[in-house]
Simulated assay, not measured.
Amino acid sequence: MYRNQSYVEPAAQQGGRAGGAGTYYVKHDFGGSAELTTTLAHAISDATGVDVTDTGFTLNDHVDPEALDRLFKPKDDGTARVDGHLSFAIWGYQVTVYSDGQIAIVPPNQPPQAPQQGPGRGR
């Protein structure tokens, strides 16, 4: 499914990623029109079932959206940020945002895991 220029990867295509069946993955497209935090808000909404327009849904209560957008946006010369991530909890869900735009949302009572290493993502 595409949402806000991002791709939600079906569970059957997640390959060798560790984690429980309930882990939700989405990849933000930094070249698209949406900000990272817009993709993040919609991903959290999809994973938790809480609509982004619900007054109980406030990303600001958990992370500074402007700081998060600045932290992971490409550098001024257009090159991507590498090897960074930020994890925080929302309503018991463990949310991890990676510098390449990948977002993993682990439901309560599941261990968090790193995304699958793909080509060009070696350490």
Rank of each mutant, 00 (worst) to 15 (best):
S45N: 05
Q14T: 07
R123M: 04
F30I: 06
G78W: 13
N109D: 08
A80N: 07
N109E: 10
A114T: 09
Q110T: 13
R17D: 03
T79V: 07
Q5R: 11
Y98I: 11
D51K: 01
Y25P: 01
N109P: 03
H42I: 04
N109K: 11
G56M: 02
Y93S: 07
L40P: 00
P65V: 11
Y24S: 04
A12T: 03
A67Y: 15
G84N: 09
P111I: 03
T79M: 07
H62M: 04
A80S: 09
A80T: 09
M1N: 15
E66C: 04
G84K: 14
S33M: 14
R121H: 07
A12L: 05
T23L: 00
Q14S: 10
H28T: 06
Q102W: 05
G78I: 06
Q13N: 06
P119Y: 08
V26F: 03
A11P: 06
T53W: 08
E9L: 15
H85G: 08
E66L: 13
S99T: 12
R17L: 12
V82W: 11
P112I: 09
I105R: 02
F88S: 09
T53K: 03
H85V: 08
A18E: 06
Y7N: 06
T58K: 14
R123L: 15
D61A: 01
A80Y: 05
Q116T: 13
V63I: 12
I103W: 03
A41S: 14
D77K: 10
T96K: 07
G32V: 03
R70Y: 13
H28L: 00
N4G: 05
K73T: 12
P119C: 08
S45E: 02
V8N: 04
L59M: 07
A21K: 14
Q116M: 13
D77T: 12
D46R: 12
L59S: 02
Q117G: 13
D100F: 07
R121C: 06
G49D: 09
I103F: 04
V97N: 04
F88I: 03
G32N: 01
T38F: 00
Y7T: 10
T96V: 12
I103S: 03
A18G: 08
F88P: 03
R123D: 08
D69P: 04
Q116H: 13
L40T: 00
Y93F: 14
T39I: 12
G16I: 08
G22A: 08
V95E: 06
A34M: 13
G56R: 07
A80G: 05
Y24H: 15
Q110F: 02
Q13E: 07
Q113T: 10
T48A: 12
A21I: 09
Y25K: 02
A67C: 07
G31C: 13
A11R: 15
T55H: 04
I105W: 02
G122H: 13
G31M: 11
L40F: 00
